[in-house]
Design a protein around this nucleic acid. Sequence first.
DNA 1: GCACAGTCTGGAAACGCTTACAGACGCCAT
DNA 2: ATGGCGTCTGTAAGCGTTTCCAGACTGTGC
Lengths: 340, 340
Amino acid sequence: MTGIKDVAERAGLSVATVSRALSGKGSVSPASRARAQAAASELGFVLSYHASSLASGRTHNVGLVVPSVHRWFFSAVVEGASAALLEAGYDLTLYNIGENAAHRQSVFNDFLLRKRVDAVIAVSLELSENELRQLHAVHRPIVGIGGPLPGASTIRIDDTAIARQATNHLLGLGHTKIAHITGHEAYDQDFHLPGTRRTGFEKAMNDAGCPVRPEWIVSADFTIEGAYAAARQLLAGAPERPTAVFAASDEMAIGTILAARDFGLRVPDDISIMGIDGHDLGNVMGLTTIDQDAKGQGALAVRTLLGAITNGTPLVAADTQHPTRLVVRTSTAVPPADAN
Amino acid sequence: MTGIKDVAERAGLSVATVSRALSGKGSVSPASRARAQAAASELGFVLSYHASSLASGRTHNVGLVVPSVHRWFFSAVVEGASAALLEAGYDLTLYNIGENAAHRQSVFNDFLLRKRVDAVIAVSLELSENELRQLHAVHRPIVGIGGPLPGASTIRIDDTAIARQATNHLLGLGHTKIAHITGHEAYDQDFHLPGTRRTGFEKAMNDAGCPVRPEWIVSADFTIEGAYAAARQLLAGAPERPTAVFAASDEMAIGTILAARDFGLRVPDDISIMGIDGHDLGNVMGLTTIDQDAKGQGALAVRTLLGAITNGTPLVAADTQHPTRLVVRTSTAVPPADAN
DNA sequence: GCACAGTCTGGAAACGCTTACAGACGCCAT
DNA sequence: ATGGCGTCTGTAAGCGTTTCCAGACTGTGC
């Protein structure tokens, strides 16, 4: 393996100068720099990542912890973060926690603590006190996306407010019989948002003087399939059918649309459906939604971290509100005439 | 920061013995081992990842290069690989190449070569000669998923055979007017599979004596949205409509189903549609498909690599065929009676 | 009682960089 | 000339482990 020593030899410089020339830190004469670079590229030399990290204390590596890359929102965040990191010359170590509790634990106990990342991004994870303490113990900046992380900087959207906005969109069209598809309660632990979105829904309904019917609040697991099943229940047996459904995520809204179609309900003529997210399928499905720019959130998290890393600023525990945008498509309309 | 030295001191042992005790390599008396472990846990000590890697040459880190985690197949592979790696105590460094050519280049030029990973998994990437040379230059085992990588071990499905099998399923039901949605030609460069699947389709058609109509072969970008648009063209203007569509991926099949519905076509009564993949939405959409177990492929790739790493066996350039499974659901049936 | 293999241990040399430090040099103002 | 300053460079001391090596100690077979 060719090392920096070989480069130095070939360039007729000292190891130190070569190191400075290649890293751009410290002053090096233009001539030396050119010689060093030439020698390096002639030898096909690349710095040893671990040696650099060990010597400098910088890993140029960010840990990203997500519940599951297989879900739309998370993979979008990963894409956004990944591109921003790549751009900055940082590596991305992915911790895909999955459903396995043991995996989750080992990520926190064994992986995250080994001083191998400069910073951590935790997506939609409600961390236990213990987990948080461990994270803080490594003294690395942490930013959370999509959920509050005590003591860490957070990027998120105002879930209550946008749930309200979404509900108001339906109310504004004249709907009063509005159902809500929320997340399973168990998810509140980890992802936190079902509760806040539901709250926004209920507030908006109350403000409008519309009753919130308990039987019209059903829960699913945030997937298309899960919501499809839940929506079938919602739309099938009820003595009375809602004229609109507000789902807590686009994936669940899409599941609802599919279920509605199965019942022969036309969207939006017979029933209006909307979600929250900005899912890629929104266009094809004609889904009205509130776009929360998941990629942008990933990228912003990276920029925030990188800023803290390079400035050496100890990341303040700030809460950044990410902008959202109501996108009206064809899945929502005024309620059918006969449904007063 | 507490180092191994502190642990040694506290345990009354030498650094060397502590290192052996904690790593489990070399012989250490049970008593010493216990003392070392106790001291380590009392101090909350964790090994420095970089120092270990530098000294041992093992990084315990695998690089995973994918076109985009945002796409179904790739994220499934990532999930499978991630779980297997976590289990084995390995980190996963994700290189999400994306559409940006500069990113792709920097991944190969700057990132992958830094002796940072013990092995590389490349998913559905047709690498250039240059890229491959660079990969081989780092002397790490490489496995490719979903595409042939000259000189590397590969895990994949027999695209031609399963495309044939899929087509035969439709032919077996009595269809003769079968359309095919393939990938854009440009994708052949990177992902390779549109061509092979199309070949399988054509072979099956030929063998059955059915004409392949050029106007019934349309291409899309492997996304639901893309196929939706392509399928609208296919199903709209034609003087004659196919009675079945075989899409080269489930996502494209789903797009086709959505397009068919928009035209008021009932699936499968008016038109049969099937894909390849084993997409999560398959169930909800009632999609007939050939399941290729993407997660399993990711996990298998990891097991293959880890075997090579631990044995020190220089991974032979073998081609492992991953099993697939025809899953018949409700999107395929015999052709409508009036369509002879 | 002795040689020998086997187990356990510590010292110290890597691993391949970064960076503090100090020296060498040129240049300017004095 | 002289001092001071800034730029450039090399020497060498880390960074925190792993692992080679040799030594110390056991127990065994003779």
